[in-house]
């Protein structure tokens, strides 16, 4: 009797200790999660708060939004100090869309071949494409600068689009290759049994199924083109510069004073659409980002 009670009491104590441990573990997890949230979001938050803050209070360090105004967004688009942010936005969209479309059109075929077909030199091709995706842009800039100077292409859109293809196309191919590997290819076999050619099976069955993967790849491709700075900073001019260059060179009324509030407004405009896009398609984006590295 007493032995049984003691045993039960001991079990209770053991269970309580385990529960306690679990509780502490979960508290620690929440604290860590809060630290991660703060670390990732605080600087971005500061950008948005500053974007809405009156320019006279640029260095106001109160953490909550104060002196709220939309003036900075007007200043960002103002062209009187030589900034061409509006034009740069259009340039970035144009360059990004063109690069993305070209890379997808070329890349989708390559990815299909790499994911589905067996052929000699497959690993060589894969290695080449992976190597290309990690290729340093700085190794391209010199010969392209000379070439484009000679043929008068400096400051043209094609001079900005062509180098971007060098890193967006490999990214597109390897992201899409890993997406393609995971698709239900039995359906393609089924379509072929029903009399489709391989090309028809690809167009009518696989393409519709692949649409989400292609869309995700398009977002990743667009973002990497949108973020490009090194090549654009050297090969563009005032008329064709993308937003990254415009923001890096953003000038204020006084040369000695950096117009931070307007820059933060411009940064917010450039970032918000991307952040929304990324958050909406979060799962797919993460799958695409990590596609090459695990599996």
């Amino acid at each position: 009797m007493t032995a049984a009670t003691e045993l039960r009491a001991e079990q209770d104590r053991g269970r309580k200790a385990a529960q306690n441990r679990e509780k502490w573990a979960s508290v620690r997890t929440y604290i860590s999660a809060a630290v991660i949230l703060f670390w990732c979001l605080a600087p971005a938050y500061w950008m948005v708060v500053t974007a809405f803050r009156d320019v006279g209070y640029t260095y106001d360090t109160s953490l909550l939004p104060t002196h709220i105004t939309l003036d900075n967004f007007r200043t960002a688009f103002d062209t009187s100090f030589g900034n061409r942010f509006g034009q740069a936005l259009l340039n970035s969209v144009f360059i990004g869309v063109t690069v993305t479309v070209i890379s997808l059109v070329l890349g989708v075929f390559a990815a299909y071949a790499l994911a589905r077909l067996n052929f000699r030199f497959k690993y060589l091709v894969l290695g080449f494409i992976l190597g290309a995706s990690m290729f340093p842009g700085v190794a391209l800039i010199t010969p392209l600068f000379q070439l484009f100077t000679n043929i008068g292409w400096i400051g043209t859109y094609q001079a900005l689009i062509i180098p971007n293809i060098s890193f967006v196309l490999p990214l597109t191919v390897y992201t899409m290759t890993s997406f393609f590997r995971e698709m239900p290819w039995e359906l393609e076999e089924a379509a072929r049994v029903d009399g489709c050619t391989q090309g028809q099976a690809f167009r009518r069955v696989i393409m519709p199924l692949a649409a989400p993967a292609i869309f995700t790849t398009a977002i990743l491709a667009f973002i990497s083109s949108w973020n490009e700075f090194l090549i654009a900073s050297q090969l563009s001019n005032d008329a064709t510069q993308p937003v990254t260059v415009a923001i890096a060179n953003f000038a204020g009324a006084q040369p000695q004073q950096i117009p931070y509030t307007a820059i933060m407004a411009a940064g917010t405009i450039v970032t918000i659409p991307l952040v929304i896009l990324v958050l909406v398609f979060q799962r797919k984006i993460v799958a695409g980002l990590t596609a090459g590295a695990v599996k």
């Binding site: 979001l41 700075f229 260059v245």
Partner: peptide, 18 residues
Amino acid sequence: RAAVLVPWAIPTAVTAQL
């Protein structure tokens, strides 16, 4: 998991200015 994507999505040029 969504929050960690925010710094990644901000262009490096903007990150530098920020």
